[in-house]
Amino acid sequence: MDKNAINPWKKLSLKQIYDNPWITVEEYQVVNPRGGNGIYGKVRFKNKAIGIIPIDEGGNTWLVGQYRFTLDEYSWEIPMGGGPLDVPVLESARRELKEETGLTAEKWTKIMRIHTSNSVTDEEGFIFLAQSLTEGSPEFDETEDLKIIKLPFEEVYQMVMEGKITDSLSVAGILKAQVLLRS
């Protein structure tokens, strides 16, 4: 990281193009790093992305499957969701794990901070390992029609390597967890 880096972009103006409870889309008139005039679009998220990799004593984890509207396809993912910007990320992680899987965890380890697509959005994500688990009943919200599966973590890692899991938070978190769990 270069903390002394100077921003080569000059923002001339900003116009809000769209707004809903989850995102705002902004359009900037800019001068780019080479001095040319242009536009830049930015999707501002109103929540942080929160992902959780629950691991039990036997080395198993849980995935949730759902049909993703934006992709128009089914997706297997780690339990995840949005955390309000003004709420501590661990508090949001605890809520999401319970909501999507029914699990609660005694041990939490933040393993990653990630930008989900830094060319078009400011979304910031956080991924946790959750251990010392207790099973319970999920509490889905009204937008969720989830399937939950419990698999050996090694099998989930192989799903990433075979391209069967493509969600960016899931892929990054599973790869990082694989390294951490092996060391």
Rank of each mutant, 00 (worst) to 15 (best):
G65I: 11
V64Y: 01
S92R: 03
V43C: 11
E77Q: 07
K42V: 04
L14V: 12
I39S: 13
F69K: 09
M80L: 12
D56R: 00
Y40Q: 15
L85W: 10
I17H: 08
D19N: 09
I50G: 00
T24A: 15
N20G: 07
F69R: 10
K42S: 14
K48T: 04
L71G: 15
L12V: 02
T24Q: 15
S13G: 13
E27W: 05
E91Q: 12
L85T: 04
A49Q: 07
W22T: 15
E96R: 02
K15S: 12
L12W: 06
V25A: 15
E91N: 10
L90V: 00
G59N: 03
V31C: 07
P84G: 05
I52T: 04
L71R: 10
W76N: 02
V87P: 11
G35T: 02
V43Q: 08
T61E: 02
V25F: 11
K48N: 07
P88L: 06
K48D: 04
E57C: 00
F45I: 03
V30I: 06
K15P: 13
P84N: 07
N37V: 14
R95Q: 12
A93C: 06
V89C: 03
Q16F: 05
I53N: 00
I78R: 00
E26H: 08
I52P: 01
F45W: 12
D19H: 06
S13L: 09
V89H: 03
D86R: 07
S75N: 07
T70G: 08
I55W: 01
P84F: 06
Y67F: 10
Y28T: 11
Y67W: 07
V30E: 05
G41W: 13
W62V: 02
V89R: 00
Y40V: 15
A49W: 09
E26P: 06
P88H: 10
N60F: 00
F69Q: 14
Q16G: 11
I55Q: 01
L71V: 05
G35L: 04
R68F: 14
K48R: 14
N47D: 13
I39Q: 12
W22I: 14
I17N: 12
P54G: 02
S13M: 10
I50N: 01
S92C: 08
E77A: 00
M80R: 08
A49C: 15
T61V: 00
Y28V: 08
G59C: 02
P84K: 11
G36E: 13
P84H: 07
R94C: 03
N60H: 06
T24F: 13
P33C: 06
E91W: 05
V31P: 03
R34E: 09
E27L: 11
